[in-house]
Each structure stands twice: as C-alpha cells, then as structure tokens.
Amino acid sequence: MLQIRNLTKIYEGGVKALDDVSFDVPDGQFLAVIGLSGSGKSTLLRCINRLIEPTEGQILWNGEDITAASQEEMRRIRRKIGMVFQHFNLVHRSKVITNVLAGRLGYVNPAWSLMNRFPKEDLAKAFKQMERVGIADKAYQRADELSGGQQQRVGIARALMQDPELILADEPVASLDPVLAHSIMKHLEDINKQDGVSVLCSLHFLDIVHRYADYVIALNEGKLVYEGPPKDIDDQKFKDIYGRDAERVG
C-alpha cells in the first residue's frame, strides 16, 4: 500500500511542480498517471523513490515514511521499487547482462560489486528475467546495439531483478511505435497480474490507459484534477485534464 499525502515539490527558482497531491495505491493496482507534458508526472514518480527530494508532504509505503528515511534506509527501500524510463536509461557501452545485473546493486555487498562480482544466483536470475522479456540471446551484446523496444525490455528486466513490490514507469512507451508500445505494456501488465506488483505508470495515450490501467489519476500544473477508473473519463473530464482546446483523438 502506497499512500501519498499532501505532496508538494517546489523547484529552486520557484516552479511548483507538484501542488498538494494526495492519493492511495493499493497493493497490486495498475495505476496510470496522465496529464500534459510538464504537468508533474515525472516529478511525482521520482519523488516516490526520492530521486527528487519532495519539499513537503509524506509518502507512506507499507506504513513507513519514505520522506523521513535515512540514506541507509533509502537504499533498502529503493531496492524494492523498480523503475522504468522513457529513454530506457541503459548504460550504452555496457553489456546487456551488466545492465540487467545492475538491478541487484541494492542487494549485493558493495565491495564485491565494485569488482563486478555477482553471486551465481543473481546471474541465473538475470538470465531468467531476460528470457521472460525475450532478450536472453542478446545478453552479451552492447546495450546500444539493441533496438528501442529491446532496450526497454532490458530496462524492465533490470527492474525485475530488484524483486520489486512496486514499479514506477515513467512514460515507458512514449519513444516507441504503437506495436512495440503494446508489447512493452503487456510485459508490465504481466508483471502486475502474475507477480502482483503494483505499477505506477505515466502515460500519454488514452487508448493505452483504457486498455491496461485499473485506475487513473490526472495532473494538471501539479494539481490532482482527476481520480477514478479510466472509463469515467468523459469529454468534460478530458477537457479538465488536458485544457479546453484539447481535441480527443482515437
């Protein structure tokens, strides 16, 4: 159970990216975050694992306050929260297997990992996850030799290596074509339904939201403007979320 309470983020320079946002994510939910570019979706996701320090408010995860956690505790919390990015954020010059194993960095002893030593179980696990997303044959290629869809699958495998209880997906399909987008979303759905991992996914296209999400929250200029199931987004709600001039397509 993830509970966001009155979360506010003001960047240096006074830009208010999040304004008093509160919502709950029950375990096992597939929650879509929608809103225009710059509405605070990315900031929200990054506040949850404190890649960005929130200015005010609380984030409670299984009853523990993430915002008050120390550095040591943060390491323990972060390793249970996988993250998938729009631009995949793989280390280009490293091999796929290294990128995937990086998901274990929160678990392994730092001293050993610095010498690129991972336990045997982790290696086996890495191959299992790569097989799951269908890139096991690419394990020893460089990450930048892969196509966009394959790179995003490496990103998902990396997140899976963390044995996550929650996955934060920051526009995971925004730089992929529609066919690839669905295949990536299917992987996320599979993780959500099979493993019971909660997924927080920011998305642009409403058809994808309708197809995959259980629940939707919408942000506009940092404020929570909609909260409810995807089917309840009618034309009026749509204009509230995306502005009066927006046109519905698809």
């Binding site: 919390i77 793989l90 490293s94 678990y107 990992s113």
Partner: peptide, 21 residues
C-alpha cells in the same frame, strides 16, 4: 544523467553508481 538516475533508483550507493553508471 539518465543511466545514473537508473542505477541510483536500484538502491545502489554512490560508489556503485560511479562504477556502473
């Protein structure tokens, strides 16, 4: 900075982030 962010998000400490990212 993207890869750094990703490595950090896995719970890696600073030294690990430097070595892997």
């Amino acid at each position: 900075t993207g890869p750094l962010e990703a490595i950090q998000a896995t719970g890696a400490n600073r030294l690990q982030t430097i070595i892997y990212g």
